[in-house]
């Protein structure tokens, strides 16, 4: 079986039916030669070995594969890798800094926002998109924003609390910077 992708240096793609694409993933420019049918989730997981993005349902239902494309949340199982060419992708691996967790990751830890953890990367990326747009969401707004992400373990209560926690922490950080 031939590989669906091959990481290359730019300008070396030649065979049809593959395409050479360049995607900025978590701030880093990466090029790859991919078959047009490859979905973004598989490029991230199998191509770039960023296995934090999970594939759950493969049909845009569960939201486990949610990543940000140009800052907007997208279910990466329902977008072709070639469609990300020239765009910026952020995965769950892009959340943490070199030495500390992102407030969302801390929040999920503090509030026990996960049990099995399968849906967690998607929950965090959908929450990141929400908090970027609305830094102090109400509980209802969080539930609305996460309504495309399924969790089979938690009953969602602690996920919502985790996002509230993160919003509080981010708000505190902003206040510190301003002070």
């Amino acid at each position: 079986m031939t590989s669906l992708f091959r990481e290359v240096t730019p300008g070396t793609a030649e065979e049809i039916p593959v395409r050479e694409i360049t995607v900025t993933v978590n701030g880093q420019r990466r090029s790859a030669v991919v078959e047009p049918r490859l979905v973004l989730a598989h490029l991230l997981r199998q191509g770039f070995k960023l296995t934090g993005t999970h594939t759950g349902c493969d049909t845009s239902n569960c939201g486990a594969c949610t990543v940000l494309v140009d800052g907007r949340p997208v279910k990466s199982c329902t977008m072709f890798a070639v469609q990300a060419d020239g765009h910026e992708v952020m995965t769950v691996e892009g959340l943490a800094g070199p030495s500390e967790l992102h407030p969302l990751q801390e929040g999920f830890k503090e509030e026990h926002g996960l049990q099995c953890g399968f849906c967690t990367p998607g929950m965090m990326m959908a929450s990141k998109a929400l908090l970027d747009e609305n830094p102090s969401p109400t509980e209802d707004e969080i539930r609305w924003a996460l309504s495309g992400n399924l969790c089979r373990c938690t009953g969602y209560q602690n996920i919502v609390k985790a996002v509230m926690w993160a919003a509080g922490k981010l708000d505190g950080e902003t206040a510190e910077v301003q002070a």
């Binding site: 939201g63 949610t66 949340p73 997208v74 959908a126 609305w144």
Partner: peptide
């Protein structure tokens, strides 16, 4: 329509 994330695309 669909869910909030699907509505983005």
């Amino acid at each position: 329509v669909a869910d909030p994330i699907v509505r983005m695309r």
